[in-house]
Amino acid sequence: MMLVELERVNKIYNKGKANEVWALRDADLRVGEGEMVCLRGPSGSGKSTLLAIIGCVFPPSSGRAAIARRQLARLPDRFLTIHRRQTIGFIFQRFNLLPALSVRDNITLPLLPLGVSPSECRRRAGVLLERLGIAHRENFPVRMLSGGEQQRVAIARALINDQPLVLADEPTAHLDSALSREFMAIMADLKAAGKTIIVTSHDPLVAEHPVIDRVVEVHDGRVLPAAAGPPAGDSSVTDHGCHGVSGHGVPQDGVPGDRLHSPSSVGGGG
């Protein structure tokens, strides 16, 4: 079943003004449930805009976009937010944590407006902290954590509401190779747990990781067809812009695949 369906999607910033920008042109993309896709392309190619539309941050200017079987164009802002809350977990390039808040408070942030009780918040956060190996940092302000630990906090926050779709925007851009590998191992666990994951990245370590089912090339606002070759001179793009499926749910790099299984134990969406 398709979780993400984009068809001839366009996004125009500042439409009708002198500084009008076509960020996406006739973009098509379909991502099935449990799939892990990497969006790759140079800076300004439209990856982040594509991710924002998938993430229900804003609707497309035109075209058809359906996330988890909901047509975004028909959803008013408020329902877009609610849909995002129920469906999508975000992991940001710079983690986007509130530095003065504790690890647990950052993780439970999405639950507060849902009226989830403090004890339930603690329970859900505790499960994730344990699974991500940062339980000992629970009450630390996040500004005191290392980059890798901060990213685990960001991952935990993205998962706290047990959303089926996880989006990661350049997640390894500020990590060294060891931490990048660690991140991918966690993603492999998530995938094994049934999550659908879309990652934007320049990093070959991500794009070429065996857990990635597909690499989708984005260039000048266009999503290149799977069969299309990489744009000339772009050495970062691999052959055909597409990787073979490395086995759904099969952990790679010797990462224990059961670490993040049974996400339902974390709790359903509020």
Binding site: G55, V57, D77, R78, T81, I82, R84, R85, F90, N96, L97, L98, L109, P110, L112, P113, L114, R157, N161
Partner: peptide, 13 residues
């Protein structure tokens, strides 16, 4: 930035 983070993690206006 704080408001934007709250919004993107699912807080409504």
């Amino acid at each position: 930035r704080e408001v934007a983070i709250l919004k993107i993690v699912g807080w409504e206006t």
